[in-house]
Design a protein around this nucleic acid. Structure first.
Lengths: 227, 227
DNA sequence: GATTAATTCAAACGTTTGATTGAATCCATG
DNA sequence: CATGGATTCAATCAAACGTTTGAATTAATC
């Protein structure tokens, strides 16, 4: 039994890199295995199918991230009720930290964010399983941190928060559009700080009833401009 | 020359629907044309290639949305400096309004958000061209509305704001994860209100220097939990 | 009603896809 | 050093891919 482990992880590493660049559908098993320098049959031998390769790529890294999120949350909660900023840090920092790792961590984060917005149906159940526990924990924690908001409002805002995170992980530097997003020179710490500040303010914003009615009133009239 | 216009638009309508569901790479030209009830060669006759079909799907709808954004922005600016909420409304309302349209508008918004997070390289230039003007306008407007922030900080926050929008358009109901995101029963107006309130608070949040240092201090130590 | 251009169609092109096979090779064990 | 399971390899499979072709069909124009 030759370098079995090497082959398996070589495939996963290469898949992580190529999938994150071109998407799962954009990478054939052939180009993947040839880029990895292994025979195409090796992928089927070790994983069974391309679908299983994809799942393996995902599963290999997401668990440590979510475990770290939970550990961070636990740590913060040991010292009493965490602040909104601490909760957001526990949610955002682990994936950003992974993205900073030299060994393809960044590739995985792009891939993960891509999975989140891609129609990978066969991943949906896996995705749900991996995240439902974590997000339930955070949902509860945010409800305690923001007791004046209802459960649904907290869930809605957590959804927005995840949008900021996914979008930032997916477009880590301002390549997609001019002058928007983090600069290439921005440190991950600075980006994390900015994200946490931005989202914390959103999480704490006044609920609907208290919102000054005039600010967005008249929208329907204005919005009816010619198409 | 039979129903030429019908065929062309039939292809675009079907492509819009299928692409938004399965992604561009997930839909073959064969399945697309057969779903549209036209011959596969018709797609090449009218568009030249699958790539051009994709571009046409995108171009057909994005311009009206961005035009409406600019018109809304102009309208608001006629009455003086718009508020942050008004700027966000001008940015978010047109795509949300399109999403509400009966004729496949929702499909297009999903598709558009998908393009934004997909690795459609051949679309990148088109995307940049379509959005650079619009986002420059909004970038300037936000800088005037938030003069205490630097240009780069405004750009970073606008990036976050777009993340909320894209993520919300891509996951319009709480299907992806339990209890997060808008309910299926939520109206678009309510979702828009919630988004505007959330993002406005983030846009207005204190810049980095003023941020209470203790809130996320100690992150490096905490973040170093076992992987 | 013939001419002509626009459009549709079935059929096939060559390539690439994910998957499979069976022989060859490797390496730990006896 | 022989055995045998684990692994790799080249070769091949049917299916699907985007694209192209040339003949058939349609609908205006003369």
């Amino acid at each position: 039994m030759p370098n079995a482990k090497e082959t398996k992880e070589l495939i996963l590493d290469t898949a992580e890199r190529l999938f994150s660049e071109k998407g799962v559908d954009g990478v054939s098993l052939r180009s993947l295995t040839s880029a990895a320098g292994v025979n195409i049959a090796a992928a089927h031998y070790h994983f069974g199918s391309k679908e299983e390769v994809t799942k393996a790529v995902f599963a290999r890294r997401i668990r440590p991230v979510n475990r770290e999120r939970i550990q961070l949350l636990d740590t913060y909660q040991e010292h009493g009720q965490p602040s909104v900023e601490e909760l957001l840090t526990a949610l955002f920092a682990p994936p950003l930290r992974l993205a900073r790792e030299p060994q393809r961590g960044y590739d995985f984060m792009r891939l993960c964010a891509r999975f989140y917005s891609e129609p990978a149906e066969y991943l949906e159940s896996t995705f749900r399983e991996e995240f439902s526990q974590v997000l339930s924990r955070f949902h509860e924690a945010f409800q305690r941190a923001l007791p004046e908001l209802g459960e649904e409002e907290v869930g809605l805002r957590l959804h927005f928060a995840i949008g900021v995170m996914v979008h930032t992980l997916l477009n880590p530097t301002r390549t997609c559009l001019p002058r928007l997003g983090p600069k290439a020179s921005d440190s991950d710490k600075a980006t994390l700080d900015a994200m946490v500040r931005f989202v914390a303010a959103g999480m704490r914003s006044a609920p609907a009833a208290q919102f000054p009615a005039g600010a967005i009133a008249g929208l329907p009239a204005h919005a009816e401009v010619a198409q």
